[in-house]
Write a protein that binds this DNA or RNA. Structure first.
Lengths: 192, 192
DNA sequence: CTTACTCATCTAACGGTTAGATAGGCCGTG
DNA sequence: CACGGCCTATCTAACCGTTAGATGAGTAAG
């Protein structure tokens, strides 16, 4: 019956979504030529406990696509007693792209639009009580916030990963404040 | 020389990214069977000024994939003096999926990881001054915040779109606060 | 008559993301 | 010794999200 559109996505796990992986990999290669496994390790270092966001395969897929696009060049290097490596190096076009990226100040501007649409759709179809949905979401977010704060404490003081976690915490707090606004809105709307 | 990996992405414009479009469309169809154009209009209503995020084609692509997956069924309806419509209706599997979605409280947990990695990579490769990058980004974010606040004022009081814009504003404020933390971090790191 | 807009749908192609396959070497346990 | 489990290292198929742009027929304005 094949009703599994999002089946491969069965575990949303902790989508600390990344996007723009291409540019990130290019920038890492700008420091020094590396093979995929190494790049991946460097990325994990920078991401700290949020490294789960990065699927190993993604690094290789992206590197291949970059090679096809002529932004990097690859060379296979054999080693004794170890799997071969494929060492990637920036091309001139790649270097240009990195500099463009560094100068680009566009920002994702992500809104919690998904949840918002959930409320609107649920209310319109009478499928669920918006106030209940907000309350449930609030509960989940509080748990996430606590987890992030715990993780931040575990990080050594002044680590890069700690900085990133601070960003996660600030966002979650903002989202919680927004949920309060949502609650007010839908409560008053029910009253009408 | 085909260096255009991200060429189609030339204008990042205003990526108010959505994701989980599938579930949103399903939920809208839960209220009543509709054709693509109508669903799109309903979505734009709910998103207000953020509707630019939605490319028309995306609705049709998604509906087609949902049909292939057996979550909706389609029926072509001709009309005089107008293009045909394709009316979509939820299947039982589709209805199940919507209810699952409503009960799911997972949250994107998006961190501004992209910018963070930009700083890390730029500093490591000595390609740019992190403090400068932060300053530039701050400037861009302040402009975005002002635009969002302006848009919020334009919205009629108590509109759904205004609620969503409030979320955007809160997030941008949180991101700005995080940028301050970043500035401190990279300044103190330079001192060392 | 031309210009431009609304209705309505579709396509090709890209980038992000994932689960899982592959294949060798290392190490400790029973 | 054999076995399981971990590390190195890469790749694939298949999704989903997203975009620019094509198509084609009405309708309204100038």
């Amino acid at each position: 019956m094949a009703q599994n559109v999002g089946a491969p996505n069965k575990e949303p796990s902790d989508g600390y979504q990344l996007r723009v992986v291409q540019e990130v990999l290019l920038a890492l290669l700008a420091k020094e030529a590396s093979h995929g496994y190494q790049v991946r390790a460097r990325l994990q270092l920078a991401l700290g406990p949020l490294a789960e966001a990065l699927n190993a395969g993604q690094v290789y897929v992206t590197l291949n696509r970059l090679e096809k696009a002529g932004l990097v060049s690859a060379e296979r290097v054999g080693q004794p007693d170890r799997p071969d490596r494929k060492v990637y190096e920036l091309t001139r076009a790649g270097r240009t792209r990195v500099l463009e990226w560094l100068g680009d100040t566009s920002w994702p501007k992500p809104a919690p639009a998904e949840f918002h649409l959930k409320l609107v759709a649920a209310a319109a179809a009478g499928l669920a009580d918006p106030e209940r949905l907000v309350a449930d979401q609030r509960h989940a977010l509080l748990a996430g916030l606590a987890a992030a704060q715990r993780a931040a404490l575990t990080e050594p003081d002044g680590s890069v990963a700690g900085l990133l976690l601070e960003g996660v915490v600030l966002r979650l707090e903002a989202d919680l404040r927004w949920l309060d606004t949502c609650a007010q809105y839908w409560t008053s709307r029910k009253a009408r």
